[in-house]
Structures are given as structure tokens and as C-alpha cells.
Simulated scan of single mutants.
Amino acid sequence: MPVPHIRIATFDDEDTLGRLDRVTWSPLHAVTPRPRPPYEPFYNERFGPHDHLVAEIGSEVVGYIRLALPTPLPCNSHVRQIQGLVVADKARGTGAGRALLRAAQEEARRQGARRLTLRVLGHNTPARKLYESEGFVVEGILPEEFLLDGAYVDDVLMGRSL
């Protein structure tokens, strides 16, 4: 499979990203219930196209990463937070996730950030390994923070300097 191309999302990507979000939903990474119709718009007052990078293989969008300010506080504006990373099942193993993660780091640097943080569920071993391989370290754990499918799951806080 060809190497993924990363670009900033556009308004035209909204339906595709919404569909991708719904078909990749899993208790491995989601703390919200499975989406059901009528579906909420993918873009909203908090997040628009400029907050997303997308991965394409050929002309097909196969993933996205959401990069945002962790809070609206000016004293926290030197930090960016990954608030979503999704890769289509058929694109797993192509390097799309790693390419999105690296592009998010570059975009955060371009925006003047000094740190990049994220939260990941403790049982999401594949994501945790990817993040660790890209220089993220565990900075905190909120034990049994979520009750998902009858099991208590840790919320793992990770970060790295840029």
C-alpha cells in the first residue's frame, strides 16, 4: 500500500470524517456511547477543519488526528493536546497513524507549542506503544477513571516536549 499523505482537513471532509469516526468506534478507545442516528455533525463550535490533519492514501481519507488547546487559559497556550486519533481498519499497518502523529507534532511546533499531551485508555496497548515509540511518556494515571462495558479502565496521561 502507498505511503499516506497528510494534509489539513477542509470543510469538504466533514461527512467522510464523521463516517470514519462512526465505523472505527470501539470501547478500546471510546468513552462515549456508540454513535446512533441522528448523528451529530463532525465539526462543531469547538472543533473545525483547522483542528484536524487527515491522512490520505491515493485520494481516500483513511484517518485523522485532532490537535487542540487543552484549555482556553492563556497561561496554558504553549501546550497542544491530541484529542482524537483515528485510522480506518483497512489502513492499519500503512504508517498512517505514525504519520499523523508526526505531522501533529510538527503542526504543534509551527503553532509555537512547547509540549504535546494526550490521554489514552489504559487497556489500549497498541496506541500506548505507538505513542511511546514517538517519545511520549506516561505523566500520570487516573486509576479506574472510566467504567466501560462493566470494567473499570485507567485514564493514562502522556506527554512530550517539542
Rank of each mutant, 00 (worst) to 15 (best):
Q83R: 15
H50W: 06
W25I: 14
A103L: 04
E40T: 14
P35V: 10
E14C: 09
G95H: 09
P41R: 14
D13W: 03
P72S: 14
L148I: 15
G95A: 10
A103G: 08
A108T: 03
R36H: 09
T32E: 12
R22H: 07
R19G: 02
R115F: 06
T117H: 02
G95D: 13
V86P: 00
V137Y: 01
V87R: 02
R109D: 11
P37G: 09
L67M: 08
T125Q: 15
V120P: 00
P49D: 07
H50N: 11
R80V: 04
P49H: 09
V137Q: 05
P33H: 12
G97I: 07
D51E: 14
L101P: 02
G95V: 06
P27N: 10
W25G: 05
G93H: 13
N44I: 06
T24G: 01
L121E: 01
T16V: 15
P33L: 11
G140Y: 01
L116I: 02
G84C: 05
R66N: 07
L73E: 11
V87W: 02
R22I: 11
T16D: 05
A96L: 14
T117C: 04
A103N: 07
Q105T: 15
S133G: 02
L116M: 08
W25V: 08
K129H: 08
T94A: 13
A91E: 11
A127V: 06
L130Q: 05
H50C: 11
P126T: 09
L116Q: 00
V23R: 13
T32G: 11
F47P: 00
D13F: 05
R80D: 02
G97H: 12
R102Y: 02
G122L: 01
R19T: 08
R34C: 10
P70G: 05
S26Y: 04
R92P: 04
G84M: 02
A68W: 00
H123I: 04
V23L: 12
P143A: 09
Q81F: 01
F146S: 04
P126D: 03
P70F: 01
T24W: 04
S77L: 10
D12S: 15
L67F: 03
P143S: 06
E107P: 03
N44A: 13
Q81Y: 01
R22K: 10
A108K: 02
P27A: 09
T71D: 09
P143G: 10
N124L: 06
L118Q: 00
R114I: 00
T32Y: 15
R110M: 11
G95C: 13
S59E: 15
L148R: 04
R114Q: 08
V79D: 00
R109M: 13
G140A: 06
G48I: 01
E106H: 14
I57F: 05
F42S: 03
E56R: 07
H78T: 05
Q83L: 13
P41T: 07
T16Q: 02
E40H: 14
L118V: 03
P72W: 11
L17I: 06
P37I: 09
W25A: 03
L116W: 00
G140C: 01
R114T: 04
R109E: 10
S133K: 12
P35S: 13
L67H: 00
E144D: 11
R46Q: 13
R19F: 14
R109L: 12
K90Q: 15
T16L: 10
